[in-house]
């Protein structure tokens, strides 16, 4: 039986990400994509699906439905405005709540990349996420961009300091992803 595994990528698209922050993240994603494809080809019975949420002034689905890894093309994102991280968690919660009681979905992989901290309310949504079994069991990885990333909030989301990486820790990022994806 084919099972589904969702990979959610939450990307800070606030104004401060413009330039070196977003370019750096682009590069991380471009390094990750071939590895995801490699995992997919070695595990055809687990369908990896990608969902991308961008959060700037508002949070929006960039890749609105779970696109298969083989068809996913990363084109980079425009950045402007504030950091609606809380809004991104709301969108994530909606999707995870749908998956939570569906036996065909394996525990998801959640990646969040940000160079700052939330400018909207996020605590309540984060508490709701923590009530979902699939959020609790998910591998949660944060990519802190630059020196001003709000590591405290990222730690609240990932649950651990050791799951927060910088963009130059690409080997560690890929290791954490692959540890989760190889079933």
């Amino acid at each position: 039986m084919t099972r589904n595994k969702s990979i959610y990528l939450l990307v800070d698209t606030s104004g401060s990400m413009e330039g070196i922050g977003m370019k750096s993240l682009d590069e991380v994603v471009e390094n990750v994509i071939p590895r995801l494809k490699s995992v997919q080809s070695s595990q055809p019975d687990v369908k990896l699906g990608i969902g991308v949420i961008g959060f700037g002034d508002t949070a929006v689905w960039i890749t609105p439905t779970s696109v298969s890894v083989d068809q996913w093309i990363w084109q980079g994102l425009e950045s402007k405005g504030f950091t609606a991280m809380g809004g991104a968690l709301i969108l994530l919660h909606e999707r995870l709540a749908e998956e939570d009681n569906n036996a065909s979905f394996l525990s998801p992989l959640i990646l969040i990349a940000s160079d700052g901290g939330p400018t909207d309310e996020y605590e309540q949504t984060l508490a709701q996420l923590h009530s979902l079994d699939n959020f609790k069991s998910a591998t949660r990885i944060a990519i802190a961009i630059g020196d001003d990333a709000d590591r405290e909030t990222l730690r609240e989301i990932t649950g651990s300091d050791t799951s927060i990486f910088t963009t130059d820790q690409i080997d560690q990022i890929i290791n954490a992803i692959e540890n989760n994806l190889y079933i």
Partner: peptide, 9 residues
Amino acid sequence: FQKLHLKGY
């Protein structure tokens, strides 16, 4: 060059 590109350059 991997490190340069990961820095955004």
